[in-house]
Design a protein around this nucleic acid. Structure first.
Lengths: 190, 190, 190, 190
DNA sequence: GATGAATGAGTATTCATTCAT
DNA sequence: AATGAATGAATACTCATTCAT
């Protein structure tokens, strides 16, 4: 099982490399197999379909984000500090693995097709968790009542937009100050 | 063809309907032709490729947005009012033509492929124009100096994120208050 | 009618230019029309099909060759002189209009398709007329009896082969001595 | 696949059957696949394109002809005997596989398009090898100096013309005496 | 006669997935 | 578990021809 896990992980990494380079549609299972150094058929021992690989990539990342948010939730910090902590984690991850960032903002639209559960989870659950964070703060009188639904949506959009731009211009410096700047706006506008 | 360009417009509309429904990749030229009530070949009398249709859709919308921004730029209003005006226009357009909204947030990722100029223009020029708006306000001492590059990127991302969610949940009510709410944040945070 | 004839000729010339350049299959009726400065529809007032244009090109050339052969047939010359005269005419024509030569050797294979009468006429009738020339010489005791069927076929093949090579190397100098050299072989071998 | 290359050979044979029957342009990959009893996709596991199949057919035949010529070159025979031997081999091959002959004379014109290397090789290299044979004979004083360039071109043209006619009339009897007759002409004219 | 917009049948090629070894 | 040859459905695009003006 240790070995099996290794191979699935091997394919996941290969897929990230190739998909971030060519896009999901232009990526063939053959090229993923080649990058991973396995036969095409082997992919299908670990994933049910090409789409399944992409789902898995998103699922792994969603898991990480959820764990960050859970970790923060309990802490004795202001809502702004909590958000900044989360953003910092997210942007750092992408700075360290730009290929992943590329996929996270660019391949999400593939989710439309059928019920691409994992990707939709990522796109829906993250804003939701941010919303919950805000709601809890309001309950605790640590934040004025506000339209948390819209704010969490806008914030998630802003995050994605910033990553999109970094990825598009292949310049990840913007991500260094992004979390602080974004939170500054949340604190007192521009 | 009595009216010039009628047929190109006919195809554009048909394409919006079909692409918003199935996604660009799952849309066949045959289905666009059928929706438009023309032969496949006719499409190619007005567009050079299937991709060209999508480009044209984006180009038309970009044109509209640019004209809004030009109209506002000259007006004697605060930066916040200007942004709200622009957002209002954008969200209204999408409420009235949700199919278009769907395409505007979902099919942009197709732009990666080659030099999909029109789509990249839409994605790059709009943030840029917002940035210019902010810069001008700073010059005119109507706004405190700030990271306009990041803010315009975040704002454009927030806009896209909100449309994405409305489109995803097929509920466009959020768009009614979105412009006001977003500007409220820009004014004084959450 | 003078005018009508002009336009048909105009299209024939345009077709020769374009077909020799791109080959018959890669030539579109649109490009012929453009080269001729007429509308596509106009072509169909003078020809029943694209194929019909090619047929006409061959028919015109066949007519010329037949008239040469008729002219020679009556003359008081040796069979070798007669053949040389014919070859000279043929090669000269091609030197002066290489585009035509290109078509004459390269587009013949299109004839297979259906009953491309004119092209088959060119390919069949010319060897036949040479054969008749030879047969008449034998009757007149001016030539030893021989396999005129095979010889005329081989001679026509040799002619085509020489033009093919000139056309392929885009060097028409070979054609200057070709008629003399070929007849020399017919006279006494190599 | 027990025997290596079986499938490529299977497809080559099927392609010869179909192409000789309908011509290259009128042959669909689907029909080749059907004739070969494989799926269309399988063709593309062995050839890069439809055109590639035709190239391969020519390449195989060129190889055979080259080996004949090499075999003769060393022998202690007169130039006429050598040529006759080669012609005999060529014509026999075509008598035994008329489909192949059809392709060899009819589909060569496809070569124009791009760099259809194999077909051009066939058309260029064969005359060249004949020319070399003649040149060597001249060097060895076994043949009078003559325009070997033109003669080899004419001879190759004659060969092609004879096959063309046999193929056109679907009567391969002519090929029985063709080599002897042609060499007779080369020896002492008609 | 001239035009050229509209037509739509026709086809090479790709590639995710399978399954016998 | 691993392999990779075989599969065949799916689709953008072309272009000869027509015909209403």
């Amino acid at each position: 099982m240790g070995i099996q896990g290794n191979k699935k992980e091997l394919i996941r990494q290969a897929a990230i490399n190739i998909i971030s380079k060519y896009g999901f549609y232009n990526t063939t299972t053959a090229s993923i197999a080649e990058e991973a150094g396995v036969a095409v058929g082997t992919i299908y021992n670990y994933f049910t379909s090409k789409e399944g690989i992409l789902e898995y990539i998103f699922a792994v990342e969603l898991e990480k984000r959820i764990s960050y948010l859970k970790k923060i939730a309990g802490k004795d910090k202001s809502i702004y500090e909590k958000i900044e902590f989360f953003l910092e984690k997210h942007f750092t991850e992408i700075k360290e693995n730009p290929s992943l960032g590329r996929i996270l903002v660019r391949e999400k639209d593939f989710s439309r097709k059928k019920g691409n559960i994992a990707i939709n989870e990522y796109l829906n659950k993250l804003p939701l968790l941010i919303e919950e964070l805000l709601n809890k703060s309001i309950e605790e009188k640590a934040l004025e009542p506000c339209n948390t639904y819209l704010i969490s949506t806008a914030l998630f959009g802003a995050i994605q937009g910033i990553v999109e731009r970094a990825v598009g211009e292949d310049d990840f410096n913007m991500l260094n100050q992004a979390s602080r700047e974004l939170v500054k706006i949340l604190r007192k506008g521009i």
